[in-house]
Write a protein that binds this DNA or RNA. Structure first.
Lengths: 271, 271
DNA sequence: TCTTGACTCTCCCCTCGGGGCAGGGCTTAT
DNA sequence: ATAAGCCCTGCCCCGAGGGGAGAGTCAAGA
């Protein structure tokens, strides 16, 4: 039986943490003195603690660890596999960011430009054509696109239609929120008569964004600036079309996205 | 001039975030209506926001970003370089954890053992020899070892003494705390007469831990169990000696650490 | 002109994994 | 008796916002 301080030292965990784990029910002492409230731990707790620490290093949250401690081997194995995939995902993301930062630095050395905004955005005014699509409009987070696109493709397949190769997302509503925005995903279909809806022709300012989606906001900014400078007015929900995306090519730096802002000529000269 | 909702959409940042940045002074709107409190943003804010987002992706905290926005190019460059190193460090750590998890899974497949505790710890009872050392006892975090060892080596060099090749840390006090424990670092020196102090001979339970320091607690646990099972009693501050460490070899899986627990034979048979 | 709906404001409480401190109780050695 | 080390509970704090209540504001339609 160890007092909390000794136990803290054995496991290399702070006393506060031990008390916290007791409070949330993750690791209860083997015995608590009824009168003094002193906590006493023994070797069973020690093993459990080692496992908890290990799982925490693997990136599980305390809430996730709790059920893991009392599930059978198979479930445990499944969860570990899932976590491994998550870690791999995070690893790739971190590598991408590292790559970005490295390029930014290199550019900073050459040009002395702090911003590293790719000013090479070529903005064109285009008239989109009407497009027959299947779509799905939901309140969703931007990380859930994959899931929703999956069901969308299933619906197209169930109707026996042919995907036309245009894939995109339209951002409805005014406000943006990373985890929950009003977003409409769409996939074009060849059979225009059997489509779910037809996206109308619009005059748009458009540009092509190359690279991962985390820097899409720069394309947005370039478009908005262009619109203002050229006497147009923002008129309707913007949308992206994914020309080269995650399903074509693994490397984010090779992705290509067309960004469209519907516009109309401004009437009054004054802002 | 954009309202907060429009601006949110342009930058792909939630309204809540914009209000928060205003509150903490990171990004103030270009104008605030004195009567209604409405916030209005324009293109200058837009550029600044893009930079903020970028720096956030690079892993800077908001507190770190604030000064970065108004410093000169050189300082900015320095900070970016520093951040790049930090990212690289995090990347390596994440890779190590990923590796650990992979090995754990493989072992789980083979043995069905959930814990993945290396039960191969061979515990020996040894008598340490007196050792002439230079030491430095401070309240420090375990991530600051490098810094303190640096100054310790400097002191040894300034005295014109020869480091004897033994490097270690002793954990004083009862409680462990990752960021602030009472720790004594020591380096042995050849010239025993001119040493700062001499560590006395002790009877110890010892084992060798192979791998990164994040799993050191498993060696601790093994030692504590052994001590209890073999009728000994824990008697004094434990210490580690780093045989193969970060300065010998880059890969954490090749590190070797000796872990010592001073012990004495228990007198009473009962616990 | 009034209403309605969309947009905005401030204010307060919540997150996760604990850290820090105040105020007090228990045990043991001096 | 007292002092030193332990330990307890309870309260507020962190970062980077999210959620919602309750109220004010703006523009367009009836």
């Amino acid at each position: 039986m160890y007092q909390i301080g000794e136990f803290s030292k054995i496991c290399q965990v702070s006393v506060k943490t031990l008390r916290y784990y007791d409070k949330v029910g993750l690791l209860r002492p083997s015995e608590v003195d009824r009168f003094t409230g002193y906590r006493y731990y023994d070797r069973a707790q020690l093993e459990k603690m080692l496992l908890i620490q290990k799982l925490k290093r693997y990136g599980f949250s305390l809430d996730e660890i709790q059920p893991l401690l009392s599930c059978d081997n198979d479930a445990f194995y499944q969860e570990l596999c899932r976590q491994r995939e998550k870690l791999q995902w995070r690893l790739m993301e971190l590598e991408t960011v590292f790559q970005e930062l490295t390029l930014h630095l290199r550019k900073l050395e050459r040009t002395g430009d702090i911003m590293d905004i790719p000013n090479g955005y070529e903005i064109q005014l285009t008239e989109t054509r009407p497009m027959a699509v299947f779509s799905c409009r939901e309140r969703m987070g931007v990380d859930e696109f994959g899931k929703y696109f999956g069901t969308l493709y299933e619906r197209v397949a169930k109707e026996g239609l042919t995907p036309g190769g245009v894939v995109g997302a339209m951002y409805h509503g005014e406000e943006f929120n990373h985890d929950s925005s009003d977003i409409e995903l769409f996939v074009s279909v060849e059979e225009s008569d059997r489509a779910e809806k037809v996206m109308e022709a619009r005059q748009c300012a458009m540009t092509v964004h190359r690279g991962g989606y985390s820097t899409l906001n720069e394309a947005y900014a370039a478009l908005v600036s262009w619109i203002e400078e050229n006497g147009y007015e923002w008129d309707g929900a913007p949308f992206d079309i994914y020309k080269q995306g995650a399903w074509h090519n693994r490397k984010p730096e090779d992705w290509e996205t067309e960004v469209y802002f519907p516009v109309r000529k401004r009437e009054s000269a004054a802002s």
